[in-house]
Design a protein around this nucleic acid. Structure first.
Lengths: 148, 148
DNA sequence: ACTTACTCTATTAAGTCAATGTAGTTTCCA
DNA sequence: TGGAAACTACATTGACTTAATAGAGTAAGT
């Protein structure tokens, strides 16, 4: 299960992507139309800003907007920022590898071997699908194309 | 990330599958060879027993053993028992569907649409791979066969 | 009987999640 | 130039989950 926070982040980015670029959107507007607690959304957008995904403009006509084109922001990138590693086991994470303390030998670990496949399948979807894909009506990547 | 408990459960089942059937294994033995806290493992095996995956025999020559053949116990089944739903969003779970309270219309939810692909890919691996597959040296299901 | 091992319920300590609170700072505009 | 609207930052809260432990009890073989 992904966190509520991640879901909010993705929904907010989709909402931003639907607006014409360069035109800031109020936090309050996103919060209301998406049903996200405003203060919580502030926190989330702030975090996304620190990672260079969005930009904000202060003052009366301020608001948030995408800093990078929507088709360069993948779901995987957002999830890793908000929720941390995507991998189902710490010993399978690319961004935060950690050996399983219990588990004698990684190469022969049966559980790891199976979840390596899960991790690959998951990453294939999440790293290929962008916010722009999500906004578009059609599925961008067909499941049958995922593992070529 | 799957829970530590799920990892222990899978490792314990793999350990049981490696023993000749009908010959009970002591909890203490599994706990020691796998580096699992014994009392915690008792809890886990008890839960698996209640779900009909393993059987136990009491007394001096007691212990645990698989109740069903290892090739009929999938990773997905074990995970659902121990960790609950596998789906990345409540609105995508088969065993515990719950509507996302925030989210106006499910059919048009962009986030849901993307994670439906993740759920499908994940389930394809987890429901096809069994304990017996994990014990065997070769990968049972090649990734490229997953989505036919 | 006595030992070994399984059975069950309860408890706890630590950590995480989702959200809220409070105190600011910046910018625009009237 | 005053203030309203909006963003920034950090601290705190309460509920819940996770991982593990505790302890009293039951069953079975020798």
């Amino acid at each position: 299960m992904i966190s509520q926070k991640a879901k909010y982040a993705l929904r907010a980015l989709v909402a931003l992507a639907k607006h014409p670029a360069g035109q800031p959107v109020f936090i309050g507007d996103i919060a209301e139309t998406q049903g996200i607690p405003k203060k919580f959304l502030e926190q989330i957008l702030l975090e996304l800003k620190h990672h260079g995904l969005v930009a904000s403009k202060r003052g009366k006509a301020g608001g948030y907007g995408l800093l990078r084109p929507a088709d360069t922001i993948s779901f995987g990138e957002v999830l890793r920022i908000v929720d941390g590693p995507i991998a189902p086991l710490p010993c399978l994470s690319k961004i935060a590898y950690r050996r399983c303390e219990d588990c004698k030998e990684e190469a022969s670990c049966e559980v790891r071997r199976v979840f390596a496949q899960v991790a690959e399948a998951t990453r294939t979807v999440l790293d290929r699908t962008t916010i722009a894909d999500a906004v578009g009506a059609d599925l961008p990547v067909r499941v049958r194309d995922l593992v070529a």
